[in-house]
């Protein structure tokens, strides 16, 4: 088990419970989908897991070590392994920086990382960035452009390149395809799937789109009002023991 979450709870105020005793675990190289409607706490869960927000009760352990967002030295070790991709491709890149500078930010902070995909020695910073862009299927000419000159899909690819640059073993994706066109969505999902296989990465895929989740994930967790309603493997999707809420979600997404 690489990521183990036990009894995780968080509330914003006394009456507003964001997460309520969440427990689950992920094996290395596994892809877990977290499905829920807006307000279900799924984005909060992502932020807590990546250490952007504090939590009140429960434990998170990664590879046996507890994750405490307040201790900076521990956090560094964790961040080296865990990266996140956000929903809004337009605001996940600084509009005032050229793409290549944005891409390099994690790698600049973890200089000891020498990712396997970098070919050649003594690359300049810009060359490194160009290689990262090529890795996610972008033209290296884009390195010098600004985010406003890129399409939504291209920006999301840049975000992926940035997140993968330090070769994390756990990637948390918060609705990475929600703001994209259908054809681009499929490209991005395929890209993630390829990297997951290649790097043997664990992915937590947060989405309200059950189709995208079933495309990528083997395990699905259904979240509602901060509580886990249902947790099952992909081949039990239509099993009659599914929670009514899960059934409603599938019903809403299906064509018939």
């Amino acid at each position: 088990m690489s990521l183990v979450v036990e009894g995780l709870s968080k509330n914003y105020s006394k009456n507003l419970v964001a997460l309520n005793t969440i427990s689950f675990s992920a094996k290395k190289g596994e892809c877990i989908g977290i499905v829920g409607e807006s307000g279900s706490g799924k984005s909060t869960l992502g932020k807590v897991l990546v250490g952007l927000e504090n939590y009140k009760e429960g434990t998170i352990t990664y590879n046996g070590a507890p994750v405490v967002p307040t201790k900076r030295s521990r956090l560094r070790e964790y961040r080296k392994n865990v990266q996140m991709i956000f929903q809004d491709s337009s605001s996940s890149l600084n509009p005032k920086l050229p793409v290549w500078e944005s891409v390099l930010e994690p790698l600049d902070n973890f200089k000891e990382c020498s990712p396997a995909f970098l070919e050649g020695q003594n690359l300049s910073r810009k060359e490194t960035a160009e290689q990262l862009l090529i890795m996610v299927g972008l033209d290296k000419e884009l390195a010098g452009r600004y985010p406003e000159e890129l399409s939504g899909g291209q920006k999301q690819r840049v975000s992926i390149a940035r997140a993968l640059s330090i070769e994390p073993s756990l990637l948390i994706c918060d609705e990475p395809t929600a703001s994209l066109d259908v054809t681009v969505q499929v490209q991005i999902l395929n890209l993630l799937k390829d990297f997951q296989k290649k790097m043997d990465m664990t992915i937590l895929f947060i989405s309200h789109d059950i189709r995208a989740v079933t495309f990528l994930c083997e395990q699905i967790i259904v979240l509602k009002n901060g509580t886990i309603q249902d947790q099952f493997g992909i081949n039990e999707l239509y099993h009659k023991s599914r929670h009514p809420y899960t059934k409603a979600l599938i019903e809403a997404a299906s064509i018939q």
Partner: peptide
């Protein structure tokens, strides 16, 4: 989100401020 990403990239607060917020 780009500021959040900067945090998850383990940039120090000073670096995040200089690189993203000051401009």
């Amino acid at each position: 989100e780009y500021v959040l990403v900067s945090k998850t990239s383990f940039s120090s607060p000073i670096k995040t401020i200089r690189l993203h917020l000051l401009p």
